[in-house]
Write a protein that binds this DNA or RNA. Structure first.
Length: 670
DNA sequence: GAGCACTGC
C-alpha cells in the first residue's frame, strides 16, 4: 500500500523495478480511458503496483496538464510527499521543483514549470481557502485514502462538493480492496441530483491493479496468547532456532512493551551458543530520536539477525527492507475521544483486517516471507474490516472550524464519509462557542473565528495567541505556542538516561509552570544561535527546536497578515495591562484560551477538575510533578492505563477563570 | 506518583 513512503534512503538498484515492467503498465490505456470517461476513479492498487509514481506520469503524458493546469497527488505524510516526488522526478529526468515538485508545510519545492505536485492532504485543504474550486488542478489523486485519516476524509467530502461545480475535474482515489465500493458509493450523486444523461453507474469506476510482492505464509497460534509479549519472545527464539536467515519485525502496541520484549529477548540470547548466529535488537517508535530510528535501516553485521521491535509506525509510515518474518500481536494502541469528559484516551484494541494484512505484507518486500499472528486463525474473521475512521475518534473542534471557514454552513448534515457521533459535534460546538469562535446562531465569528480557523493551532491555543496583543505578550505567546506544538519532544535523554535529562530540564524550570519553562528553553536556544551542539549539551532535541523555530516564524507571518504585530511596550500600554509583570500577563493570556482546562492541586499532589468529579495527575514531564501548586490551566489531557495525565501546566488565580470566562463558569454551575 | 499509538496544517 504505502510502498513509496519510506525514509529517504538511497535507491538500491536491485530493489528498483523499471516502470515498464510494473503490472500497472499493461493497464495504462485502460486507466487513461477510465479517468477521461468517469469523474471518479477508485484505484485498488496493491503494494508494489506503482500507482503513486506511474499514474501522475501517464496523465501528464496524456496531456492533462497541457492547458496550464496541474496534477495534484496528496499523501498523508510529509516523508511520502517528498520521497515520491524525488522518485518521479528521477524517472522523468528532471530536478525536483521543475516539472515535478512537492509542497509540504515549511517547504514549497515547486515552480511555474511544475505540472505534477505531490503534497500532504492537509496542505491541499489549506490551499482551498485561497482557491476554493481548486481551479489550478485538472486531476486530484488522493493516495492512501483507505487509512481514513481526518484530513483525507474531509478532503474527499469537500472534493465531492467541488465536483458539483466543476464537472471537468477528475478525482482519483487510491484505496484498499475492502472499502473501494464505499468510496464509489460515496461519490455517486444522490438520485435526485442526477439528470437523465448521467445514470449512477456512469459516474465512477473501480480499477484493480495487482501488486508486485512476494507471497507471505500466515501462521496462527492455536490458543490465544495469555501474554502476547511473552508469546512474541517465544516465537522470535523459535524462528531464530529453526528458520532460515532473514530479519524479524515484531508489532507491539507501545514503548513499555517494546522495552520489556527487548529485555526478555536479550536474556534468552545470552543463553545461546555464542559461536552461532546472533541477534541484534532494535526498538522502533515515533518518540525515539531520529538518529536512533535510523539504525533499523542499517545492515546487520555478519552472522547477525536483526530483530526490530516496533509500534504501529512500521505498518505504513516506516518501510524496512529485508524483513522476512513478521510477528503480529494483533493489537494496536488507538486514540479515542470521550466527549462527555472531554478527554482523549489511549486504548489497546484489536487491529483491523486491513491492518493485519498490511502488517503481514511487511514480510514479503524482499522475498517470500512468513507472518506469525499471535492469535487463533478464527479470530481474524471477528476483526473489523478497517480501522475506525479518525473522524469518529477525535475532538472535532479544529475540524469544524476548518469546515466552517471553507464555507460549509451545516456541519451536522455535512456529507461525511462516515458520520462523526453527534455527541462529538455538540461538544465541539460548545467549546467553539465558549471561545467566541462561533456565535449563538452557530456561525463563524469575524474576525476571531476565521482567524482561529486559519491558524495552524488548536482552537484554545489559537485563541490565547490572538489575545496576546491585549496583554502585551505577543512575542512570548508566539514562542509558547510554537513550543507546545512539539508535544513534549523538546527534551531528550541520551541512551535512556532520563535522570540526566530531568536534571537539565530543571535548570530551565520556573515556578510559574511548564509554559514559561518552555519559553525559557526557546529563548536560550535563540541566545545560543540555534546551535545543534548547544542542544546536544543541554539534552534538547535539535530537530524539535528547529521545528519550533519554523512554527514560530510561520505563526508570526499569519499574525502579520491579520494586521496583528509585535510592538514595544509603551508607558500607556503598561497602564492598560495594569502594570503587571510579564509572567502574569502571559499566564492571564493563556487563561483566556485554556479556561475550560483548569484544575486544582490537592494536598496529595493529584489534581481535581473544577467540577470536582475527576482526578488528574501531572505528567512526569511537568514541573508540577515534584512541586506544589494551587490552581493551574493545562494544555493537554490524556488517559493511559486508567490514569489521567495533564501536560504543560501553568499556575493561575482562580479569579481569572470567572474574569475571562464568566459565561462558561456560570452555565457550568447550573 | 513515573510516562507518549500515529499523523498533519
Amino acid at each position: 500500500m504505502a510502498e513509496e513512503d519510506e525514509f529517504s534512503v538511497p535507491l538500491i538498484a536491485d530493489l528498483y523495478t523499471p516502470p515498464a515492467l510494473l503490472p500497472i503498465a499493461q493497464l495504462k490505456d485502460a486507466l487513461l480511458y477510465t479517468i477521461e470517461t468517469y469523474t471518479v476513479t477508485i484505484i485498488v492498487g496493491e503494494t508494489g503496483s506503482g500507482k503513486t509514481t506511474q499514474i501522475p506520469q501517464y496523465l501528464y503524458n496524456a496531456g492533462w496538464t497541457s492547458n496550464g493546469q496541474q496534477i495534484a497527488v496528496t499523501q498523508p505524510r510529509r516523508i511520502a510527499a517528498t520521497s515520491v516526488a524525488a522518485r518521479v522526478a528521477e524517472e522523468m529526468q528532471c530536478q525536483v521543483g521543475q516539472e515535478v515538485g512537492y509542497s509540504i508545510r515549511f517547504e514549497d519545492v515547486t515552480s511555474a514549470k511544475t505540472k505534477i505536485k505531490f503534497l500532504t492532504d492537509g496542505l491541499l485543504l489549506r490551499e482551498m481557502l485561497v482557491d476554493p474550486l481548486l481551479k489550478r488542478y485538472s486531476v486530484i489523486m488522493v493516495d492512501e485514502a483507505h487509512e481514513r485519516s481526518l484530513s483525507s476524509d474531509i478532503l474527499l467530502s469537500v472534493l465531492k462538493k467541488v465536483l458539483k461545480v466543476r464537472p471537468d475535474l477528475r478525482v482519483v482515489i487510491s484505496s484498499a480492496t475492502l472499502d473501494a465500493e464505499k468510496f464509489l458509493d460515496f461519490f455517486t450523486p444522490d438520485k435526485d441530483e442526477v439528470g437523465e444523461s448521467k445514470p449512477n453507474e456512469e459516474y465512477g469506476r473501480i480499477v484493480s491493479i495487482e501488486g508486485r510482492v512476494h507471497p507471505v505464509e500466515i501462521q496462527n497460534l492455536i490458543e490465544p496468547a495469555s501474554n502476547y509479549v511473552e508469546a512474541a519472545v517465544d516465537v522470535v527464539m523459535e524462528i531464530h532456532k529453526s528458520e532460515a536467515q532473514g530479519d524479524i519485525l515484531i508489532f507491539l502496541t507501545g514503548r513499555d512493551e517494546i522495552d520489556d520484549a527487548i529485555d526478555m529477548i536479550a536474556d534468552r540470547v545470552a543463553e545461546l551458543d555464542a559461536t552461532k548466529e546472533t541477534i541484534q535488537l532494535l526498538p522502533l517508535y515515533a518518540g525515539l530520536p531520529s538518529e536512533q530510528q535510523m539504525h533499523v535501516f542499517q545492515r546487520a553485521a555478519e552472522n547477525t539477525r536483526k530483530v526490530i521491535v516496533s509500534t504501529n509506525i512500521a505498518e505504513a509510515s516506516v518501510t524496512i527492507d529485508g524483513i522476512v518474518y513478521v510477528i503480529d500481536c494483533g493489537y494496536v494502541k488507538l486514540r479515542a475521544y470521550d466527549p462527555v469528559v472531554g478527554i482523549e484516551r489511549l486504548n489497546v484494541v484489536p487491529v483491523s483486517k486491513a491492518s493485519a494484512t498490511q502488517r503481514a505484507g511487511r514480510a514479503g518486500r524482499t522475498r517470500p516471507g512468513k507472518c506469525f499472528r499471535l492469535y487463533p486463525e478464527g479470530a481474524f474473521d471477528t476483526l473489523e474490516d478497517a480501522t475506525f475512521p479518525e473522524i469518529q475518534r477525535s475532538n472535532l473542534a479544529p475540524v469544524i472550524l476548518q469546515l466552517m471557514n471553507l464555507g460549509i454552513q451545516n456541519i451536522i448534515r455535512f456529507d461525511y464519509l462516515s458520520n462523526p457521533p453527534s455527541q462529538f459535534v455538540i461538544r465541539a460546538f460548545d467549546l467553539l462557542a465558549s471561545l467566541g469562535a462561533v456565535d449563538t446562531y452557530g456561525r463563524l465569528t469575524k474576525p476571531l473565528g476565521t482567524r482561529m480557523a486559519e491558524l495552524p493551532l488548536e482552537p484554545m491555543l489559537a485563541k490565547a495567541l490572538l489575545n496576546a496583543p491585549t496583554f502585551n505578550c505577543l512575542s512570548e505567546l508566539l514562542t509558547i505556542a510554537a513550543m507546545t506544538t512539539l508535544q513534549g519532544t523538546a527534551f531528550i535523554s541520551h541512551d535512556g538516561n532520563t535522570k540526566a535529562a530531568d536534571k537539565k530540564k530543571r535548570t530551565f524550570a520556573v515556578t510559574e509552570g511548564d509554559h514559561i519553562t518552555l519559553y525559557n528553553v526557546y529563548e536560550a536556544f535563540v541566545r545560543n544561535k540555534l546551535q545543534a551542539q548547544w542542544c546536544h549539551d543541554n539534552l534538547l532535541n535539535f530537530k524539535s527546536m528547529t521545528k519550533a523555530h519554523s512554527v514560530r516564524k510561520q505563526l508570526k507571518h499569519y499574525l502579520e497578515r491579520f494586521g496583528v504585530t509585535e510592538h514595544p511596550l509603551h508607558a500607556s500600554d503598561v497602564l492598560k495591562a495594569g502594570g503587571l509583570e510579564l509572567s502574569e500577563r502571559v499566564r492571564r493570556c493563556l487563561t483566556t484560551g485554556f479556561f475550560a482546562q483548569a484544575a486544582r492541586m490537592k494536598p496529595d499532589g493529584s489534581f481535581q477538575t473544577v467540577n470536582g468529579k475527576t482526578t488528574l495527575w501531572a505528567h512526569p514531564s511537568s514541573v508540577f510533578f515534584h512541586r506544589k501548586a494551587d490552581w493551574v490551566i493545562y494544555h493537554e489531557i490524556l488517559e493511559t492505563r486508567g490514569k489521567i495525565y495533564i501536560r504543560d501546566l501553568t499556575t493561575i488565580d482562580m479569579d481569572w477563570l470567572t474574569e475571562y470566562a464568566s459565561d462558561y463558569y456560570k452555565t457550568k454551575k447550573k
